[in-house]
Design a protein around this nucleic acid. Structure first.
Lengths: 124, 124
DNA sequence: CGGAATCCTTTTCGATACTG
DNA sequence: CAGTATCGAAAAGGATTCCG
């Protein structure tokens, strides 16, 4: 049978909200921010230093989105110059294994990918 | 000690090429294309129909990138109107478990994320 | 059928300046 | 310190037209 059963079909039946969530949580900067915060809570400028390539604007956007999605929480200490600490939430930690798996995958397959790229670029 | 050992540090020591690869392979359309091709080889217009929201331009770009990275292969049959079939490569299939895990994660946590969003939007 | 080429609109982005 | 506001440049995306 070529037709899938209902039980088989549900794997490809991913709804748009699910994909949008992955987009928000797995993008370039989110991934790096989550990596850092999984290790330890950090303040805004500590994150900037930990991820040198990120601009202040992008970091703000990324943190707001992660906060909105419940991945990180923002703790404000009302001292003289305010101190803002970002830390991973329990929900955020559920992503850690997946992120590790993704990074593990790149580590394991990067060489093959680069050879594929060379082949592709060569024939063009 | 706050300093990480060399052994601990390598988890966060992800190089830029690794992240770029994830960006190319996990983006919005790539994810859906890989899902489809993991199930069965498809032709260009079959993919368009399987992913109604994608434009011809975006699909072309996505397929070229996946092909360049060795995730899919492009098979041209020189019939009268050419037939082009796309199929997942062995390297591409190594991503399937990760994609399934990602989709599983969204399924398991989507409700929590939506509640987090409501809380966040409410206090704003 | 499977695109490439073009045009145009729309996000996105970095840089800069300013604020509590 | 931790942002917001603004502006211009750059990149991405959609619609349309054309081609082997």
């Amino acid at each position: 049978m070529l037709e899938t059963t209902d039980a088989q079909a549900d794997r490809s039946q991913i709804t748009a909200p699910h994909r949008e969530l992955l987009d928000e949580v797995l993008d370039k900067w989110s991934l790096q921010v989550l990596e850092e915060l999984c290790e330890q809570p950090l303040r805004f400028n500590e994150l900037r230093r930990a991820i040198p390539a990120v601009t202040q604007k992008s970091l703000t956007t990324t943190l707001r989105r992660l906060e909105r999605n419940g991945m990180v929480e923002r703790l404000v200490t009302s001292t003289r110059p305010v101190a803002v600490e970002y830390r991973i939430t329990p929900l955020g930690t559920t992503l850690q294994d997946l992120i590790d798996a993704l990074l593990g995958w790149t580590g394991a397959n990067m060489a093959k990918v680069e050879r594929a790229r060379e082949r592709f670029d060569a024939e063009a």
